[in-house]
Design a protein around this nucleic acid. Structure first.
Lengths: 143, 143
DNA sequence: GTAGGGATACTCGGATAATGGGTGTCCGAGTTGACAAGG
DNA sequence: CCTTGTCAACTCGGACACCCATTATCCGAGTATCCCTAC
């Protein structure tokens, strides 16, 4: 029961894309170098974000990734679900007498409490209380 | 990012112990058979619950497991943390300029939203709206 | 009747697979832009 | 000037390997209860 590293990579990459100049496409090499990971692996992670319509990829020279849609719309939940999937965290595989499991039910409710928080929290909000020098730091080191 | 099966086993076992007559010790064989799993593996899972002071084990003939403390105190969170551990679900392993990660911070907040729900939710509450025949069903098939 | 000694029914803990998902690498394929040569 | 061809910089996708936690099994050790026997 841990988030995968891929989720971490995705969130940090997306935070960087939010901070980046609007409409600019950033190469995966740049993104990978900042997180000290392999570019090919990061591209695999980002392809999931493309499928989820969070970002857009352009091939060829000067290609790379950029946000798809307004940056204010990027919530934590969208990113996480794009990587981890939308399935329930808890699956009771037992054969019960009644069709549904009471335990499963409350576990689902607890997940909804978390998802509700994550869906309302946008990546942009992280930048509200940061001055210009702080933004520059994020652009270099992901804060 | 999924709960382990062990958590499922632990929750169902504990729900059964809550329903069981007060003070009775239940053998692991009975508990395992209902969930259709191996008794030796279930005992391994339950040993974690013993370490967490949720249940108590008595060896020897007629031995088994029983609740430790009042059944009204058994929250979902206690069981889950006994199995999954208390660590944070999200760990940003990146070297940042500033000591703490903004992303990590909000992820921790989202976890707290879920944990708050799980800590307030007790296993006993699942039985409130169930009649006596329903309780009997749980005693046989874990509902 | 009472004390002692098995036999039995249990849990506990370590050692040891088997399995599957996360993590990561490699490489070929396809795409785009820049540049140069040739008409 | 315009076209065309080549090259380099990219992403994409599949195939593969590795590592590690989960899941599970097996077995010996310890422990408590019951019963039976002997005195």
């Amino acid at each position: 029961m841990k988030y995968s590293k891929a989720t971490n990579y995705a969130l940090h990459t997306l935070l960087f894309l939010v901070v980046a100049p609007e409409g600019a496409t950033i190469g995966v090499q740049v993104l990978a170098q900042m997180q000290k990971i392999s570019p090919t692996y990061l591209s695999k992670v980002l392809s999931k974000l493309v499928k989820a319509n969070l970002i857009e990829s352009t091939t060829g020279v000067n290609g790379g990734y950029k946000l798809l849609g307004p940056k204010e719309d990027v919530s934590f939940l969208k990113v996480i679900q794009a990587i981890e999937g939308t399935g329930s965290l808890f699956n009771c595989g037992l054969k019960h007498a009644s069709p549904d499991c009471l335990i499963q039910q409350t576990m689902a409710e607890s997940e909804m409490a978390m998802e509700q928080y994550l869906s309302q929290k946008k990546l942009v909000e992280l930048l509200q209380n940061i001055d210009e020098t702080g933004l520059a730091a994020i652009r270099n080191t992901f804060n």
